[in-house]
Write a protein that binds this DNA or RNA. Sequence first.
DNA 1: ATTCCGAACTCTGAATTCAGAATTCAATAT
DNA 2: ATATTGAATTCTGAATTCAGAGTTCGGAAT
Lengths: 223, 223
Amino acid sequence: MKPIALAPSLTEQAYQAVVDEICDGALASGSRLVQEQLAKRLGISRQPIQQVMGLLKADGLVEDAPGRGMLVAPLDASLVTSRYQIRGAMDGLAAQLAATRAGSLVGVKDQIARRGRSIVKAGIAAIESKAIKRMVAYDVEFHNFVYECSGNSLITATCEPHWLHLRRAMSEVLRKAAPPEDIWKQHENILNAVLEGDAKNAKSLAIKHVEQACEGLTNALTV
Amino acid sequence: MKPIALAPSLTEQAYQAVVDEICDGALASGSRLVQEQLAKRLGISRQPIQQVMGLLKADGLVEDAPGRGMLVAPLDASLVTSRYQIRGAMDGLAAQLAATRAGSLVGVKDQIARRGRSIVKAGIAAIESKAIKRMVAYDVEFHNFVYECSGNSLITATCEPHWLHLRRAMSEVLRKAAPPEDIWKQHENILNAVLEGDAKNAKSLAIKHVEQACEGLTNALTV
DNA sequence: ATTCCGAACTCTGAATTCAGAATTCAATAT
DNA sequence: ATATTGAATTCTGAATTCAGAGTTCGGAAT
């Protein structure tokens, strides 16, 4: 009887706002972030902003620039590779667990199929729409969906900081080149393996997908 | 010419202090954390404490208790399992990468051997000393060492929040039962596989080690 | 012209203050 | 005895203020 909705604090709202600006490329690498300016821009005081900066620092999205404020961290191609390595391990785990779960609990299988296919469809449409933010958003959503299906509620949280950086890198790259053709075909294959309960295959498909994405992205970045 | 040391802020110091108290069990699950009390106890104002609470919330170590402050989060056995699943994937990845690196770069191999063996020795001594904090500390140190050896600088950061919770769980359990006999034997085997450059073996040993640790810990917790 | 020095400025971390939301508890009504 | 209501208390989020560290820039000395 109490599905309450609790109001997000200014800190949370500001965090989301700034994170999105950074990840969507509105704030370029190296941009100076001055607390007072941000505060004024968002119409709040410096206090919640300072809180936000602490979170962003923990995420590695900003760096200290003593005396000059904070800088949006440069996106380092080698770190992107590291993040993809980690995602490979996590996405593999998630796909494996999800397949096992889908294979044993017939109840969830239908739900997974329904939502999964809907995301795939939306993802394909997003690519056709050529809207970068939407393309990235659905890619993120698909993988977070698999994380959820794994039954391990911490995978999403573990990968989140990495996704922030990867969103940034993907946005950057997509501004210059189209996404790989078969990306949603790969997603669909992963989904199908999960639905078939084929843990082994789901895992290897997920890992392969991440490896290819990594290669594509780092190539485009280091050009 | 400037290997400078920058002073840790009050926020960072306070964060460390509180985190340690929670993870070492000095602050039991469900303890109330009141900002003003903490501030007084640490001899600082509420401002940095509030910052700290934000970080702790992000780590999942505390929960909001509207009107009553914050509570130290209960340690949930099912979440511990989830954390171990994640650690399995990460430790496997780290061991694999470390072995590959040790196998190809002969220079690093000696360094790894030296530091690795020293940690193993200290870990064994810690167990004989019966000092829980030291036992846990060296376990953490060994695994962080493997993470470092992997060459992927983000594995440590990715696992850190999980280690915080696992430290808590381990401390809890070790207060009632001795650690498994062969834990440092397992560590040593992992180290050796890494040194031999046997990536496949290092990975599977690391994963097996985590699985066993998970089983032991969850058994002890759910008793 | 270049380097060195210091004053003015900028920006952050920390302290203090303010306002609002939730809890607690006692008095009252049933 | 139990439930209800509302005032006092507690506690946090946010604003404001304060102090110190770092940068910038202009003038003096070489």
